[in-house]
C-alpha cells in the first residue's frame, strides 16, 4: 500500500457516496474465522437481505459494522467516512442503527422510556439533569415511534413484562429513533406470529426511501419481499450477490440454501 493508493481510496469512496463500504473485513475468534475477506457495498437507501445458514457469520458482520467487535483486518466506511476504529456510539451518531437477534432492551424501564433513551442517545443533552417538560419534543417523538409500531396501549408497561413479539416490535422502534440512514435488522421476524410478521413487512416497506437497511432473514419469502438486493453468506464469506430474482433462480443457491426445507 502506498500513500497515493490510500489517498485515491479515500477520494474514490467519498465521491461514490456509499452508505456502507466494507473492504477485506476479516474477523477471527481465536482460530475460527467468522468472517473472511468480506467486501460489501451498500448504496444510500438500498435495501439488502443477507442470507446464510446458521453460523455463516451474519451477526458477526453486523457486530463489526456497529463496532461491537473490532475486525481483525480490513476497513469499514460509513457514508464515506472511515469508522473502522470508532466506538459504537460514534457510528450510531452518524445515522447507523441496529436491532439484535436476541432482544437487548432495558427491562427495568417502561416502553416510552426505552424509546425516549433511543431518541436522546442521538441528540444533545444526553447528560441533562433536567426532567423533560410536558411539551418535550423528544418525548413527543418517542410517542410517535411507539404509535408507528402499534404499541401505544403498552406505553407505560415495564419492558421486562412485555411478551416476546412485543419486545421484537420495540426493538424496531428503537432502531427507528433519531434520524437513521442505515439500519441493520438482525432476524427481526424470528419467532413472530404470521400477523406480526405481515405487520413487520408493512413497517419495513413503509420506511421513507432515504433510509437504507440490511436485513438478516432466514425466511426467504420475507427476505425477498422486503429487499432489492441479496447477499448470500456461507462459512464467513459472501459467495453470491444479486437481485432477489437472480438469487432465487441460481442453481448453486438452490442447492445450498433452498435445497433443505424450502424446496
Amino acid at each position: 500500500m502506498t500513500m497515493t493508493d490510500t489517498a485515491a481510496d479515500r477520494l474514490g469512496s467519498a465521491s461514490s457516496g456509499n452508505a456502507l463500504e466494507l473492504r477485506g473485513v476479516t474477523k477471527l475468534f481465536g482460530a475460527l474465522a467468522a468472517l473472511t475477506d468480506i467486501n460489501l457495498t451498500v448504496r444510500p437507501g438500498e435495501r439488502r437481505a443477507v442470507l446464510g445458514s446458521n453460523g455463516a457469520g451474519k451477526t458477526t458482520l453486523f457486530n463489526c459494522v456497529t463496532g461491537d467487535f473490532l475486525p481483525t483486518n480490513g476497513s469499514i466506511r460509513l457514508f464515506g467516512e472511515d469508522v473502522t476504529s470508532f466506538p459504537p456510539q460514534e457510528r450510531i451518531r452518524r445515522g447507523l442503527r441496529r436491532t439484535y437477534q436476541i432482544s437487548l432492551l432495558f427491562g427495568g424501564l417502561s416502553v416510552i422510556d426505552n424509546v425516549y433513551l433511543a431518541c436522546r442517545g442521538v441528540s444533545r443533552g444526553r447528560f441533562s439533569m433536567l426532567r423533560p417538560r410536558r411539551n418535550d419534543t423528544l418525548m413527543a417523538r418517542a410517542a410517535e415511534l411507539i404509535e408507528a409500531v402499534h404499541m401505544t396501549p403498552l406505553k407505560d408497561t415495564m419492558v421486562r413484562n412485555l411478551a416476546y413479539g412485543q419486545q421484537r416490535q420495540l426493538e424496531i422502534a428503537l432502531a427507528l429513533s433519531g434520524a437513521p440512514r442505515l439500519i441493520l435488522f438482525d432476524e427481526p421476524a424470528a419467532g413472530l406470529s404470521p400477523t406480526e410478521r405481515s405487520e413487520l413487512i408493512a413497517i419495513l416497506m413503509g420506511l421513507p426511501g432515504h433510509i437504507g437497511y440490511i436485513i438478516i432473514e432466514h425466511d426467504m419469502d420475507v427476505a425477498l419481499r422486503v429487499a432489492t438486493s441479496v447477499s448470500m453468506m456461507h462459512n464467513g464469506r459472501i459467495f453470491k450477490e444479486g437481485s432477489p430474482e437472480e438469487i432465487e433462480n441460481d442453481p448453486e443457491v438452490q442447492e445450498l440454501y433452498l435445497g433443505g426445507g424450502h424446496g
Binding site: P88, Q89, F106, G107, L109, L117, G121, V122, L174
Partner: peptide, 18 residues
C-alpha cells in the same frame, strides 16, 4: 434514565449513541 439504561444493558446503550 440513561444511567438506568446503562445498568440494564450497557452494550445496547452504546448502540443507541451513549
Amino acid at each position: 434514565l440513561a444511567l438506568q439504561g446503562v445498568r440494564d444493558n450497557p452494550r445496547r446503550m452504546a448502540a443507541l449513541g451513549f
